[in-house]
């Protein structure tokens, strides 16, 4: 077996193990929350008999460990349980929300990642000169502002002043792709501004670090143009650190967009989670936590795997 296959399968196994460990943490976390699910469903005026019946019905009297395993095995088979508040199947109601979140994240990523890499390369090419200072300054400013501030500024300019886009980003299944894109334009802009800086700065730093290497001097002494040196000789060796930051930001686009979704009233996972947290709907919170953790761990494992695959020493052992 090629040693790289072993390395990759180790990473995957590690990822699965991590997800299971996280599921235990999520379950334990929701168990030690104060309050009682039955109580919060039935309200303060519920009779003790009604509470006892509901607890029995929800299986809350079972030992925690067996409830955890019931939940975990269900989740592995795609059954995330039913929401306490409306009795709907969580997997079904979450699917469309998750699809919306991924839709938004996808378009934000497809703009932000190439843009960040290009800006990072340009900043590295002109390190210490005005293009670098401009790019670094602007991205630093956008990352320093809280997302909701950026969100309202964008909304004020584009929706209120120029009326280019609708001020809320409600989307339906019946909308065409173009209509959907028009609706999510503003949250995409905000997300791009928020994630750009990290990736751009990491690209710049990683490239500048590689530029210190002796083989960059070799390339210079071959008479190559600075842009060629950066793209052909420096960038391939800067992929590993860059890809890690890119994946962290992609994960953020999925699991960290709660605020932006709320600002633009976008029907994604964030809104769904916030709604159910306020209603103490523990199964939904657990399910969201599990999905977020899986996305986060999955993307990070993916980053690891890309770093392994782009390392020539691992790809072509002696």
């Amino acid at each position: 077996m090629h040693p790289i296959v072993k390395l990759l399968s180790q990473r995957i196994a590690l990822g699965l193990l991590l997800i299971i460990a996280t599921s235990a943490l999520i379950f334990a976390g929701t168990q030690i929350l104060p309050g009682d699910v039955a109580q919060s469903i039935l309200g303060q005026s519920a009779t003790p008999e009604a509470l006892a019946n509901l607890r029995e019905e929800l299986g809350l009297n079972e030992p925690a460990l067996s409830r955890y395993f019931d939940w975990l095995f269900g989740a592995l088979q795609g059954d995330l349980g039913t929401a306490l508040t409306n009795g709907k199947d969580i997997a079904t109601s979450m699917a469309s929300r998750l699809a919306n979140t991924l839709f938004l994240a996808f378009w934000a990523a497809i703009i932000a990642v190439p843009l960040a890499l290009i800006l990072g390369l340009v900043a590295a090419r002109y390190a210490g000169r005005w293009p670098d200072k401009l790019i670094s300054g602007v991205t630093l400013a956008t990352i320093s502002l809280p997302e909701f501030v950026v969100g309202y500024i964008v909304m004020y300019i584009l929706a209120v002043n120029y009326r280019l886009f609708p001020s809320t980003s409600v989307i339906y299944d019946s909308m065409s792709l173009l209509e959907k894109l028009n609706a999510i334009a503003m949250p995409v802009i905000v997300l791009v501004l928020v994630v750009l800086a990290h990736m751009m700065r990491m690209t710049r730093a990683a490239i500048l670090n590689v530029m210190q290497s002796a083989y960059i001097e070799t390339a210079e002494l071959k008479g190559l143009r600075p842009a060629t040196i950066i793209s052909r000789h420096a960038f391939p060796n800067a992929i590993a650190p860059v890809v890690n930051v890119v994946m962290l930001n992609l994960a953020y686009l999925v699991v960290g967009v709660v605020v932006v979704e709320v600002v633009f009233v976008y029907p994604g996972m964030g809104q769904y989670l916030v709604d159910h947290v306020s209603k103490r709907d523990v199964p939904v919170v657990q399910a969201c936590g599990l999905v977020f953790a899986a996305v986060y761990i999955g993307l990070n494992i993916l980053a690891d795997m890309i770093a392994i695959l782009t390392n020539p020493r691992l790809r072509h052992p002696k």
């Binding site: 290497s213 083989y215 001097e217 002494l221």
Partner: peptide, 25 residues
């Protein structure tokens, strides 16, 4: 003009070939 000269009229062999080759190519 210097880029036209380097790698064409004059070339360079460095002390540490191990460090002077790009590991990714």
């Amino acid at each position: 003009a210097l880029r036209g000269l380097r790698g064409r009229e004059v070339t360079y062999v460095a002390q540490s070939a191990a460090a002077s080759f790009n590991p990714a190519k």
